[in-house]
Amino acid sequence: MASTATTLDRLRRDQTATVTSVNIHGPQRRRLMDLGMLPGTRIHIDRVSPLGDPTAYLVRGSVIALRREQARGIHITVEQE
């Protein structure tokens, strides 16, 4: 099972990924971690806003919507089927 490193905004609907690092600093980093976005967390897309942004992710049982520019700061490895 190979895996590719990328950022969260590149994740596709049918994929599952694992967070490797959060490359955002300051209070926003805290906030994301408050919501469960920690290294090692499995994440996948729950749904995309009808206007294309933000995207709602399923993280540890909650649904969290992030705008694209935030998702860009979250590094992930995509699990390949």
Partner: peptide, 10 residues
């Protein structure tokens, strides 16, 4: 109880 981890942070 359904989001225990996140709540335990607090």
């Amino acid at each position: 109880a359904t989001r225990l981890q996140r709540n335990l942070n607090l």
